[in-house]
Design a protein around this nucleic acid. Structure first.
Lengths: 283, 283
DNA sequence: CAAAGCTGTATTATTCATCATACAGGTTCC
DNA sequence: GGAACCTGTATGATGAATAATACAGCTTTG
């Protein structure tokens, strides 16, 4: 007899309405059904509908006008930063210079088994672990946990880490980085990440796990990044390659990625378009 | 007087413990603190701790043994499918795993403004909209919503859509697909997606929004995909290209798919330990 | 074996989200 | 202006999640 944990009705209503909005069912600028109507439709009280709408309003998805109604906010004005995957790290390095970094934690110790394994460390080898938050325009958008073998980490100071891109520091130590693997996934915000990113616990997050290798194959950096999906997303252009028999999509390389291509014709789907404000790498 | 909506303490504990586990703070196979200890540590009742552990157990992250304790399940055995970003679906077929498709919805109508805009449709032009769920080994892992211009959609039947890849059908209609853009993000599962993917409402999801263009620049397919992060994740290998002055990371193309590194590197996991306590639960 | 610790389970009290209802005040439309 | 909407706000009642406590049965340790 388990009571099925039906997590907060308000949350359910919130997610339902959110889906309708982003799916375009409720067009931007349109008015959504009144609170009594919504309450009846979903068989909940108006108070609950109200709390769902509070969440939507806080996310900027709707705008409420007393006496008039609740309207779908034109979300196309606020778009997340788009990071081009075809050009990942240089993009991040660029960003490392135009954004602020807050160093939350810094120290040395024995890594967990999984970290040690992915870096190819011998048992007992120590690592430097750091936790940073990156902010753009003063707003946090990424929560970065990095592990670096101790012998590399010792070549720079805590202050340097807070000021310069980690990869630059690694290369300065004499290591050459040649290959990297990364995986993208999604997760929920735990207490620490939620606090650092100014989010509610349980908010969705984009995750990026990247391991950078030196030519010999040993790992020199293990990065685990959490991104706020409303402020950051990955983007890539694909081109069709191969012959008829074996046709694939491949990332478009070396293609003129002047960011103005998104200003006229948006190709971002979902919450596309019209880059009113947002990103400019300078700020 | 807003009561800050502190969604379910059990959920908070669940997320906290989950983070510790995937961060490696609690090593696989290790025993985590007893339920009374956890209850005291987080100032909640044992019942609540219990419900958090129920969630962890349902996710397969821990294994409980009556009379003995709760142990971190060796999660390295069950890893999500890793999809190479440059070769998304053919990869699955290579693995010899059977993917089924369930067609949930099929029909024609006027698209939302954002869809119409991203496909480059004229006002009033109609689209075919379909919702499908893809399963691997009988388990759902993706929820796909596609929009295709009507003149293309009419060239194939509902039954064909359920049986063959959409892109194949589009090309069969005479259209050549050459270019595409896609964006990756994260979101929470709404009621429909949650039901289709056999998840709780509010679970994290990976999203992929892809728009495929024909040479003339008109959009021929708008795909919005939701993936279960525990069963699917994106992976890519990067190589360093360019000269000293302008060094960049680019996706490695045509890489050998039998690379074993992807099977053990895709582990996400980690997060700082900061408090340093815990983790010494040996045996 | 016995003690100590653990998970599994049940019971009751308390706290908090939700409900149902009512009313104030703004907006829209006739 | 006035009727019919709407959002904003407050009230007490109800129900669900959590807290506090107790005990059974199993596992490990000495």
């Amino acid at each position: 007899m388990k009571s099925a944990v039906e997590p907060l009705k308000a949350r359910r209503i919130y997610l339902l309405l959110r889906d309708r909005i982003v799916a375009g069912e409720l067009p931007p600028g349109g008015r959504l059904p009144g609170e009594p109507a919504l309450a009846a439709e979903h068989a909940v009280s108006r108070v609950t509908v109200r709390r769902a709408l509070d969440l939507l309003e806080k996310e900027g998805l709707v705008q409420r006008k007393a006496g008039s109604g609740t309207f779908v906010h034109d979300t196309r004005a606020v778009r997340p930063i788009v990071a081009d995957l075809s050009n990942v790290l240089s993009h991040l390095i660029d960003m490392g210079r135009s954004t602020d970094v807050k160093l939350l934690s810094f120290g040395y110790g024995i890594p967990s088994e999984s970290i040690a394994e992915s870096l190819g460390l011998k048992p007992g080898e120590r690592v430097q672990r750091s936790v940073r938050v990156r902010l753009i325009d003063g707003e946090p958008f990424s929560y970065l946990t990095t592990h670096v073998p101790e012998w590399i980490g010792l070549t720079y100071s805590e202050a340097e880490l807070a000021a310069r891109p980690l990869l630059e520091l690694i290369e300065r130590s004499g290591v050459t980085t040649e290959r990297a693997t990364q995986a993208i996934n999604a997760t929920l915000a735990g207490p620490e990440a939620a606090a650092a990113l100014d989010l509610e616990i349980g908010s969705p997050l984009l995750t990026l796990t990247r391991i950078v290798y030196e030519p010999s194959g040993r790992g020199v950096e293990h990065l685990h990044a959490l991104y706020r999906p409303d402020r950051y997303s990955f983007h890539m252009d694909l081109v069709r390659t191969g012959n008829d028999g074996e046709r694939r999509w491949s990332p478009a390389l070396g293609w003129p990625r002047t960011d103005k291509s998104k200003t006229d014709k948006s190709k971002l789907g979902e919450k596309p378009t019209r880059s009113t404000r947002a990103i400019k790498q300078r700020s």
